[in-house]
Design a protein around this nucleic acid. Structure first.
Ligand SMILES: NC(=O)c1ccc[n+]([C@@H]2O[C@H](COP(=O)([O-])OP(=O)(O)OC[C@H]3O[C@@H](n4cnc5c(N)ncnc54)[C@H](O)[C@@H]3O)[C@@H](O)[C@H]2O)c1
Ligand SMILES: NC(=O)c1ccc[n+]([C@@H]2O[C@H](COP(=O)([O-])OP(=O)(O)OC[C@H]3O[C@@H](n4cnc5c(N)ncnc54)[C@H](O)[C@@H]3O)[C@@H](O)[C@H]2O)c1
Lengths: 248, 248
DNA sequence: TACCGCTTGTGAACGCATGCACAAAGTCGG
DNA sequence: CCGACTTTGTGCATGCGTTCACAAGCGGTA
């Protein structure tokens, strides 16, 4: 977290050059920057001080040209002939991703998934402390989960304001999701991570990301089906599963 | 599930026309087709028989031209001037996504997240029955979770073969993920859904999808940071938060 | 049957992302 | 100080995905 800017300071603008860069970073590159950051943090923990685009790209599972282009979106912090300083890169990616301040997280719907999320230690360590839990079930209200007592959903506006929640996680059953979303929005939350398999309607100033496991599995299913079909087709055409031509 | 093909039949090829289509469907469109399928299923449950591209695209949160193009990848099943028959569309999307057969799922790592996944009722209902659970912890082995007794990770090869597992879900701590992945692959699993924040190395014939919640949150963080910065910038330039020009 | 209004399906244009290939720029050994 | 070697940063071409816009096609109606 090497930054001259204080934590929690949302109003100090980035330097003009950075501002234009941040605006121009492609969405796909932002997702990859987060991955690079994780890999780099791991390297830093192991005492690695310098890394080349080739090494880092291999570790991150991407092509090295893409990696360099992604890094170029945030500036030129490499040294030709040497590579990148791990610490420097970490701090610049953190700055661009807005990780120089903590982002307080609220989880709504403390069922199976909500419990797992509330107990998960990986978020606070990455600058995303879970500071509020909500559920509609009176039996759950007041019970501490992962060290935080569950609040009633009715109190969402007050509690979110008090704890400066900036990310709301929806882990309720699908029918309740839109209602919860509306409440989060009216409580001033501008970022929502949705686990319920429903399409949420939100105003323009709110950013939603969804995690839909059934969709992920269906995509996998599509790929097996396609592969199985190609294999069957190849067999029909006289090509073995190993690629050898059986009937030329 | 309207299909003339029997369940579990992986070897019967699709019709030639369908095969070429399946090959050509863009990855992004596949993900959306899964969403359309969910929305359509909901409509079917509510007795809706016909839907226009406009209605369906609104419900799925996309632009109607994109929806029509996506549907055109799987064939022409609409009626001009009328719209699409919900049932027909559902069965065609299911066929293209390979959902005419069940895909047996194994979850590895029955901790916080593994428990939630094993207990989740949404997968079996969508053709993804969870049929095997694995953990390295002896205290967990034999304990039923969500109705299925946990097996020891050592038995993964035998059990996956017996239960014809086609999708492996990794919910172990990050350091164990690659090892678990290798075991799944050697057990013949070709589809992997990975929750551990690590980049998995797999052979070409294995499909991996990852769900990385920290990355999702960092993407959200990037967007708030950018927005906050734009707002601060606008204030400096004399534009109020409501878009009104304060100092013209 | 002929017309009208509506909705699909798609050609074409555009914009974004990816990957290549190389000049520029630095390090390091002699 | 120089020259060889390494690695970055990026201009450019290519391909993929999105969006527009409209002709083609269908049902309903008179
Ligand atoms: N469990 C999983 O592994 C999993 C996987 C994929 C998707 N999901 C999705 O995540 C969501 C949660 O799944 P789950 O298994 O934890 O469900 P769950 O039924 O175990 O928990 C849901 C919780 O939400 C609470 N709730 C209901 N209405 C609410 C409201 N209006 N406001 C606040 N809280 C409310 C309930 O009291 C309950 O505690 C569902 O939409 C599910 O489809 C879950
Ligand atoms: N819990 C969450 O909400 C959450 C959120 C995001 C990411 N994740 C990731 O998901 C993974 C699991 O998280 P969790 O909170 O459930 O962790 P956890 O520690 O609660 O559970 C991990 C389980 O994996 C088992 N395990 C360890 N090594 C194993 C091996 N070699 N083979 C089989 N099983 C093994 C452990 O015995 C334990 O039961 C982690 O990688 C975590 O980073 C979890």
């Amino acid at each position: 977290m090497a930054s001259q800017r204080g934590e929690g300071d949302l109003t100090t603008p980035l330097e003009p050059a950075d501002r234009e860069r941040a605006r121009a970073i492609p969405e796909a590159a932002v997702a990859r920057l987060a991955v690079y950051l994780r890999v780099l943090s791991g390297m830093a923990d192991q005492g690695v001080t310098t890394v080349s685009s080739e090494e880092l790209s291999t570790a991150a599972g991407v092509n090295s040209a893409k990696l360099r282009k992604d890094l170029s979106y945030i500036g030129s912090y490499g040294t030709r002939g040497v590579g990148y300083d791990v610490e420097v890169l970490v701090s610049h990616i953190e700055r661009i991703l807005g990780l120089t301040r903590k982002h307080s997280v609220a989880v709504v719907g403390i069922g199976n998934l909500g419990h797992a999320l509330a107990n998960y230690g990986g978020f606070p360590g990455r600058g995303f402390p879970v500071t509020a839990l909500f559920d509609v079930d009176d039996d759950l209200v007041g019970v501490p989960v992962g060290g935080i007592p569950v609040n009633h959903i009715e109190d969402i506006q007050r509690v979110c304001a008090e704890r400066e929640v900036s990310i709301g996680v929806i882990a309720t059953p699908p029918p309740a999701a839109q209602g919860v979303c509306d409440r989060l929005v009216s409580a001033g939350v501008q970022c929502i991570l949705n686990f319920a398999p429903v399409v949420l309607q939100v105003p323009d100033n709110v950013e939603v990301r969804k995690v839909d496991l059934a969709v992920e599995m269906q995509i996998l299913s599509f790929h097996v089906a396609r592969r199985a079909d190609e294999a069957a087709n190849d067999l029909v055409n006289g090509i073995g599963v190993d690629g050898m031509v059986i009937r030329p």
